[in-house]
Design a protein around this nucleic acid. Structure first.
Length: 119
DNA sequence: CTTCTGACA
DNA sequence: TGTCAGTA
């Protein structure tokens, strides 16, 4: 599929799809006319990338773990540099902190709702 | 009409 | 990230 279709199906702007390619996160093939051609399976990958970016993981880190995203079991087999592991632990902790904060506010709102609209 | 590259905010 | 330019 062309970049426009992938953008429509993933919700990721064409501008970003080209940017992710520039960052080494995607490598679509090219049609005779120079247009980028994306594999159907890349829809998942784009979703994967978006999720990581939304989680605060920089494209540089995503690029390093991307080769293993398809098969996590091969992760440590290939690359497990101490630096990368340390970075991942850092982002994991940051994410964990955000999750806790969200859960806390969710519960606070639930309590408020229960008070104003008891059942 | 869609995509491409490069550039600027 | 958004958007504009000038093409193919």
């Amino acid at each position: 599929m062309l970049i426009g279709e992938l953008a429509a199906r993933t919700g990721v702007p064409t501008r970003l799809l080209r940017y992710y390619e520039e960052q080494g996160l995607l490598e679509p093939s090219r049609l005779p006319n120079g247009y980028r051609s994306y594999d159907d399976g890349l829809i998942e990958r784009v979703t994967q990338i978006r999720g990581l970016i939304d989680a605060g993981v920089p494209t540089r880190i995503i690029r390093e773990i991307l080769p293993c995203l398809d098969d996590p079991t091969t992760f440590h087999v290939f690359d497990s540099s101490p630096e990368l592991v340390a970075s991942l632990r850092e982002y994991h902790d940051q994410l964990d902190a955000r999750v806790r904060c969200l859960a806390r506010n969710r519960d606070a709102l639930a309590t408020y709702l229960a008070a104003v609209h008891p059942h």
